[in-house]
Lab assay of single mutants.
Amino acid sequence: KNALMQLNEIKPGLQYTLLSQTGPVHAPLFVMSVEVNGQVFEGSGPTKKKAKLHAAEKALR
């Protein structure tokens, strides 16, 4: 199970927000955030999926 699945089991129905998309078309950088218990966690990556995963990993720490 990855961090997204684990976080969804603990806190179902979380909303992930796209904060920014920067970089060239062939190498974009997405920044996504998720709010858990009033705290906002951000993650970035080359795809929205990876950015969401990194945000979930930070939220689980």
Rank of each mutant, 00 (worst) to 15 (best):
K1G: 12
K1E: 11
K1Y: 06
K1V: 12
K1A: 09
N2M: 05
N2H: 06
A3H: 10
A3E: 05
A3M: 13
A3P: 15
L4P: 04
L4I: 15
L4R: 07
L4S: 06
L4E: 10
L4Q: 09
L4W: 11
M5H: 14
M5C: 14
M5L: 13
M5E: 15
Q6G: 06
Q6P: 00
Q6F: 08
Q6L: 14
Q6A: 15
L7A: 01
L7I: 07
L7E: 01
L7F: 03
L7D: 03
N8F: 06
N8H: 11
N8G: 10
N8L: 08
N8Q: 15
N8I: 07
E9C: 10
E9I: 15
E9Q: 10
E9N: 14
I10H: 11
K11G: 07
K11R: 13
K11A: 10
K11P: 02
K11N: 11
K11E: 12
K11T: 09
K11D: 15
P12K: 09
P12R: 08
P12E: 04
G13Y: 03
G13R: 10
G13A: 08
G13M: 06
G13E: 09
G13W: 04
G13V: 03
L14A: 11
L14M: 06
L14S: 09
Q15K: 12
Q15T: 12
Q15S: 13
Q15G: 08
Y16F: 12
Y16I: 03
Y16W: 15
Y16L: 02
T17V: 09
T17C: 10
T17W: 06
T17D: 04
T17H: 11
L18K: 05
L18S: 04
L19D: 07
L19N: 06
L19H: 06
L19R: 13
L19W: 04
L19A: 11
S20C: 08
S20F: 06
S20W: 05
Q21N: 09
Q21P: 05
T22K: 10
T22E: 12
T22V: 08
T22R: 08
G23L: 04
G23T: 05
G23V: 03
P24V: 06
P24M: 06
P24C: 10
P24T: 14
V25M: 13
V25H: 11
V25Q: 15
V25K: 15
V25P: 15
V25T: 14
H26W: 07
H26T: 12
A27V: 06
A27D: 12
A27T: 08
A27I: 04
A27L: 06
P28T: 09
P28W: 01
P28M: 05
P28D: 03
L29S: 13
L29H: 13
L29A: 11
L29E: 13
F30V: 08
F30S: 04
F30P: 02
F30Y: 10
V31H: 14
V31R: 14
V31T: 15
V31S: 12
V31W: 10
M32K: 00
M32C: 10
M32A: 10
M32R: 02
M32V: 11
M32H: 03
M32S: 06
M32E: 04
S33H: 09
S33L: 06
S33F: 04
S33T: 14
S33G: 14
S33C: 12
V34T: 07
V34A: 04
V34W: 02
V34C: 07
V34G: 01
E35D: 11
E35R: 05
E35M: 08
E35T: 09
V36M: 07
V36L: 10
V36P: 01
N37K: 06
N37M: 09
N37C: 08
N37S: 08
N37L: 08
N37R: 05
N37Y: 07
G38L: 01
G38E: 05
G38M: 02
G38Y: 02
G38A: 03
Q39N: 05
Q39K: 10
Q39E: 14
Q39Y: 09
Q39G: 06
Q39T: 13
Q39I: 15
V40L: 11
V40F: 08
V40S: 11
F41I: 08
F41E: 01
F41S: 06
F41V: 07
F41L: 06
F41T: 04
F41P: 00
E42N: 06
E42T: 12
E42W: 05
E42P: 02
G43D: 01
G43Y: 00
G43F: 00
G43H: 00
G43M: 00
G43W: 01
G43N: 02
S44Y: 13
S44F: 05
G45S: 00
P46L: 08
P46Y: 14
P46C: 09
P46N: 12
P46Q: 10
P46M: 10
T47W: 00
T47A: 02
T47D: 07
T47E: 03
K48E: 11
K48H: 07
K48D: 03
K48A: 09
K48M: 13
K48F: 06
K49N: 14
K49E: 15
K49I: 11
K49H: 14
K49L: 14
K49Y: 14
K50D: 11
K50C: 14
K50G: 08
K50R: 10
K50N: 06
A51Q: 03
A51M: 02
A51E: 03
A51S: 03
A51H: 01
K52S: 07
K52I: 04
K52P: 00
L53R: 04
L53W: 13
L53F: 05
L53S: 09
H54E: 14
H54I: 11
H54W: 05
H54Y: 09
A55Q: 00
A55N: 00
A55P: 03
A55G: 00
A55E: 00
A55W: 00
A55H: 00
A55R: 00
A56V: 02
A56Y: 03
A56H: 00
A56I: 02
A56W: 02
A56Q: 02
E57D: 08
E57G: 07
K58I: 13
K58E: 11
K58A: 12
K58S: 11
K58T: 10
K58D: 11
A59Q: 00
A59N: 00
A59R: 01
A59D: 00
A59Y: 04
A59W: 03
A59G: 03
A59L: 04
L60M: 10
L60V: 09
L60G: 01
L60Y: 05
L60S: 02
R61P: 04
R61I: 12
R61F: 11
